[in-house]
Design a protein around this nucleic acid. Structure first.
Lengths: 340, 340
DNA sequence: CCTGGAAACGTAACCGATAACGATTGCAGT
DNA sequence: ACTGCAATCGTTATCGGTTACGTTTCCAGG
């Protein structure tokens, strides 16, 4: 039942207990300088009135709130997995978590969202923030850890070993016999997108296969961005026999387009993704992909942020986590029929 | 790069523009009574200083914040799926979302968490809240929608048709020929747990199979709670030939225990869950379960909350969504060998 | 020239909680 | 009895932004 009763404030408690708000504050925060008898009175008043301190009011005044923040521009599987890791790291740590997600009012990928959210939160709702896939460098009064940071950033961050992961993925395709391998890139400003493209190029070059720029499509990690790119690649007279997409979300769209255009996977086309989001295992065939343990990314980011906030600072400021190739049904040797 | 520069406040802007903070506030909020020239000055000062209004400060004074809240006591797959639906419903709605999750400081299932969080947020950070699987009725100044509410609640809520879903699940097992069917119940206080147990009983009774109380284990939806219960059921001299768990999380634990004790699934034991979390499709064999579209639950809850907050109120206050049986590999007809 | 009233803007009182500070009291030491 | 210190508690400024209200400015109408 929703009782729209007036909120109980600290002064209500103070009045009920016959003390000042300052004393109530001291009791609530366990500070020094209150007699046992007064503490009991205040406690009982709090109990009776059902008082809970206002996060808003206290964080305006206080410097430390014991709340960490996470800002994300959207909420996809990727973010959800990261969150699980963050929650795990924060469990029983004494830190609560506030996730701030906007409603895409300015379009789904509007530049600078993280800065807006961050300044809105950091004065002073949170003691520190995790930013997932930012658009640029951010400034903040409180510590910030980036997950999948922008290229060239030297700020604290956690990311996967994207170069090695992408290289392995493409080597897997090369090992199956593919030579014409398309690539759908991620958002250019992110270090991950850059490294994954580097891995693609490195693997091809390492195998003596020239890089064909016309086989590279420029996406932005947004699944929808891959659809037209995949269509272009597959409608060529000489389509590639395999496509490596820089994220699973985009790879799933490639599968969609392939089906739509009558390509059988993996018969006519092999597809590899990157991320290993849960959905990748559910498609038919399952998506071969590079696992980057988004859970782990979240876990490490939260750990790092905690140590930054508490001032322990005993870790490197940039963590790189290993990746792992997960081979499923979407990759197979090329059939000669599919190649011109 | 993290620049630990002092935050830009409204009075900084006011000073720079040569006006009072009141005027700045009027400009920021688009209120009436500011000359075009002054507006331009203030806008330029805001631009130059990179000012962003503080969510904390403004929500302390203002009644409306255009931010909705979601409180959850933990962050599992279930919550993640719900969140996706919530975000979808809120996209481009003008409402931002704050998710508040605690760090389990008081143990993973401490009563009253949602009330604590709610009062902390609702005075007055958020315009309304969604509470996922609450422990009890809550009171709040602002509207509250419960996802999977407590038993007997008449407050606004969204839930699956748990009775029909559970009935279908058990009828599926009965149809395969099972007669000794174990049940692992969910947290008693939730309507969903109650209805799922009712469905279990109804299906058995409907098929003329007496309900054996010793085949019912009392879990709490927490996956870990199922492990000892499954062990008890399966170590009996006369173990059931099938187990229906009230949630996928618990069902997966049943699979774990079964493997550990040497039961082959579905040969010696059939297992059915409820929820259809992503992991259920990934196990070997896949888990037969009842899909309740947690995405849809979140979506509808957010839609309802929006209409409550804006005062439209054109929907029923309790929504029940249909369920769907998803048959995978974990169920099969019982083998006579497994039955005493 | 005077008046009325609207427009434009500043002042100050909030919102709820915190903390610096001062005042008062109790008590041990001398 | 006097001093010093610590314990206890109230007063008040403060955080950043919002808003009721008061003040000033300016112009049209008389």
């Amino acid at each position: 039942m929703i009782e729209v009763n007036a909120p109980v404030t600290m002064s209500d408690v103070a009045r009920a207990a016959g003390v000042s708000t300052a004393t109530v504050s001291r009791v609530v925060n366990g500070h020094y300088g209150v007699s046992a008898r007064t503490i009991a009175q205040v406690r009982s008043a709090i109990e009776q009135l059902g008082y809970e301190s206002s996060l808003v009011a206290s964080s305006l005044r206080r410097s430390r709130t014991n709340v960490l923040g996470l800002v994300a521009h959207s909420f996809q599987s990727y973010t959800a997995e990261v969150l699980k890791g963050v929650m795990k790291a924060l469990s029983k740590s004494g830190f609560d978590l506030i996730i701030y997600a906007n409603s895409d009012l300015y379009g789904s990928y509007s530049e600078g969202w993280e800065q807006r959210h961050l300044t809105r939160l950091s004065g002073t709702l949170t003691d520190g923030c995790i930013v997932v896939t930012p658009w640029g460098e951010v400034r903040s009064r409180t510590p910030v850890v980036a997950i999948d940071p922008v290229r060239g950033s030297t700020a604290p961050s956690v990311m996967a070993d994207n170069l090695a992961g992408a290289t392995t993925a493409v080597e897997h395709l090369l090992g199956l016999g593919h030579r014409r391998i398309g690539f759908i890139a991620g958002r250019d400003s992110l270090a991950s997108a850059w490294s994954r493209e580097e891995g693609y190029r490195a693997a091809l070059t390492g195998a003596g296969v020239p890089v064909d720029p016309t086989l590279i499509g420029r996406g932005d990690f947004n699944p929808e961005s891959a659809t037209p790119l995949a269509r272009v690649l597959l409608q060529r007279p000489d389509p590639p026999s395999a496509i490596f997409a820089a994220s699973d979300g985009m790879a799933l769209k490639v599968l969609e387009v392939a089906r739509e255009l009558g390509f059988s996977v993996p018969g006519d086309l092999s597809v590899v993704g990157f991320d290993n989001i849960p959905e990748s295992a559910l498609t038919e065939p399952g998506l071969t992909t590079v696992d980057q343990s988004m859970y782990q990314l979240g876990y490490e980011a939260a750990r790092m942020l905690k140590s930054l906030v508490t001032g322990e600072w005993d870790e490197p400021s940039q963590i790189v986590l290993p990746t792992r190739l997960v081979v499923r049904g979407s990759t197979a040797p090329p059939t000669s029929a599919a190649r011109p």
